[in-house]
Design a protein around this nucleic acid. Structure first.
Length: 588
DNA sequence: CTAGGGTTAG
């Protein structure tokens, strides 16, 4: 919060005429400005200031600018419009603008503010300016500009300021020039803990973990951040045991320490080890990221139940989920067909007025349709302001697998009309719709459409799989075989597996043997192929052949283990048993 | 008489 400045402000004489800065209205307006913490309130204060004619004064103007650049959702265009009212911006005003642009990730604008500042003869950058500017340079990895700024620092005499020096260390190390960072450090009279941490972080980011460790052992003092940086270094390098030893040695762990360790385990695929740490972690230290790490990983691994349970734990601790977590939770609900849970999440989104962007909307659409609430799904889809490819894909795919093939295909043409470019998943959804209803003509059309000039998408194994199945169901097995023969996937086992499965379902021994021959050539240990083939023989009452295959299977000593292939549809992984049928969606 | 630096995930 900003304290009121005393009212004995120096004022330019020409401004004192219409002054009113001391008037009760002005006073109240200035206090209003201090209290407000939303853009809307700023704007009200702003217009009041204009009415009172106070924007001529440097003090209110600077304060207004401070308010509207410092808030986390600052509107920098708005800030800029105020800035431009200032004919003679002072150092404070410039600094606020640079900082605001930096916070809003408008790095170029931050730099151009700096440029106009240095070309302004009346005011020059001070010790506060440089950390912001240097940070902008390091975020942009603009090392050449950074070096020039370094020159300015020295020229203007801020080379001894510890904050500025530390910013320089960071600039050089984020640009990979750790040697320069060390040079800056060695010239410092009094490097502090932040200087050392910046060096350690720089080394860690370059993968120089041993060097980082040496510094860690050498420095006189360490902070929690020091420990966390080094632990993160070990974790990044895959030395999780080393990280764990340090972690255990820490006398004070903070949220970062725990999250770094948990994240490290997770990245190495040690999800259960991560969970153990998660359970050991004091509840009061857990934050959004802690939960995000666990829930996101559970969701990726299809451990939906655990994802949801952890999500509920999070709610018990009153930690507010962000939309990433909500997407994960919704996807778990749809995989588990847990409508009630999903509806609760939707209610939460409405209650908390969380913005339903394309991704979150798609997750809702997917959840409702997987739970059989197609109407509800469609109404959400229609209410979405922005629809990306995934949103369309979710609708088309789910309509298709629920038997609404006409609707699915009409959504597909709506999509093209809306100018959204279909991707491979779109075509997979469309083709699986055709397969679902035996629409051979349409299937062929869409299959060739995807690779034509307009879309230039190469059909993948999954697309071929759909086509094989579609053709086979229409008793067009020879066409299916030709498709495989002429594809780029003649050395792809699942591809032949799909043909074998189709042949098997039709009892077509010739094509079956043909496909099996290819599979065995490619992978003599493919068990599912033998099993499929023997089933095919049995079904055709060719028991001798079937027994022969079974025997072969035994002698090779292969265990029965069906092969799986998976595809991803709108972020949800669907498993297909490639050996037998292409339409066996195990995930449902 | 306003303001500044180092650590964790998608």
């Amino acid at each position: 919060m900003y304290t009121m400045a005393p009212m004995t402000v120096r004022m330019a004489p020409k401004l004192t005429k219409n002054l009113g800065l001391d008037s009760p209205q002005s006073q109240s307006c200035l206090s209003l400005l201090e209290l407000c913490n939303s853009l809307k309130e700023f704007k009200q204060a702003h217009s009041k200031l204009i009415k009172l004619g106070l924007l001529q004064h440097p003090l209110p103007l600077t304060r207004l600018l401070a308010c509207c650049t410092l808030c986390p959702d600052a509107d920098m265009n708005y800030a800029r419009s105020i800035f431009e009212l200032d004919e003679n911006p002072n150092t404070f005003v410039y600094n606020f603008m640079i900082r605001g642009n930096l916070q809003q990730h408008q790095l170029e604008n931050a730099l151009s503010m700096f440029y106009s500042m240095v070309s302004d003869a009346n005011y020059s950058p001070n010790h506060i300016t440089f950390p912001f500017v240097l940070k902008a340079c390091s975020r942009m990895k603009a090392i050449e500009v950074g070096k020039q700024v370094h020159g300015q620092v020295l020229k203007l005499g801020f080379g001894e300021d510890v904050y500025v020096q530390n910013s320089l260390i960071n600039l050089y190390s984020t640009c990979g020039l750790i040697g320069f960072s060390i040079m800056v450090l060695e010239r410092m009279k009094n490097p502090d803990i932040v200087s050392w941490n910046s060096i350690i972080k720089g080394l860690v980011d370059l993968g120089l973990i041993e060097e980082a460790r040496q510094i860690f052992d050498k420095i006189p003092k360490r902070s929690v951040v020091t420990w966390n940086c080094l632990i993160d270094g070990y974790v990044q390098a895959g030395f999780v045991d080393e990280a764990r030893i340090l972690f255990n040695e820490m006398d004070r762990k903070d949220t970062f320490s725990w999250n770094t360790m948990i994240g490290g385990f997770i990245n190495l695929g040690l999800v259960d080890a991560a969970r153990n740490l998660f359970d050991e972690m004091p509840e009061k230290d857990k934050d959004l990221i802690t939960f995000k790490l666990m829930i996101d990983r559970y969701a990726r691994e299809g451990r939906d139940r655990e994802a949801l349970e952890t999500f509920q734990e999070m709610q018990k601790l009153k930690i507010k989920p962000d939309s990433f977590i909500l997407v994960n939770a919704l996807s778990a609900c749809s995989n588990l067909v847990m409508l009630e849970q999903g509806e609760q999440i939707q209610a939460y989104i409405e209650r908390e007025k969380i913005e339903v962007d394309a991704v979150l909307g798609t997750a809702l659409v997917d959840m409702f349709s997987k739970c059989g609430m197609i109407e509800k799904a469609l109404s959400i889809f229609h209410s979405m302001e922005k629809r990306d490819v995934s949103a369309w894909n979710a609708v088309i795919y789910n309509l298709g697998i629920n038997g609404y093939s006409k609707e699915a295909l009409s959504f597909f043409s709506d999509m093209l009309e809306a100018g959204t470019a279909p991707d491979e998943t779109t075509f997979l959804s469309v083709l699986s719709t055709c397969r679902h209803c035996g629409l051979v003509e349409d299937g062929r059309k869409f299959f060739y459409m995807m690779s034509d000039d307009a879309y230039k998408l190469a059909p993948k194994v999954e697309h071929y799989g759909c086509m094989i199945d579609l053709l086979a169901r229409a008793n067009l097995l020879d066409e299916a075989r030709k498709l495989v023969d002429t594809s780029d996937f003649s050395s792809n086992v699942p591809m032949w597996g799909a043909l074998l499965g189709a042949a098997s379902r039709l009892g077509n021994i010739e094509v079956g043997e043909y496909a099996a021959k290819h599979i065995i050539e490619l992978d003599p240990l493919d068990t599912s192929c033998y099993i499929e083939l023997s089933n095919l023989y049995s079904a055709a009452a060719r028991y001798d052949k079937a027994a022969e295959i079974r025997k072969k299977l035994k002698t090779i000593g292969i265990e029965k283990e069906p092969g799986y292939s998976s595809i991803e549809v709108n972020g949800v992984t669907h498993k297909f048993r490639v050996s037998s049928t292409f339409n066996c969606d195990i995930g449902l």
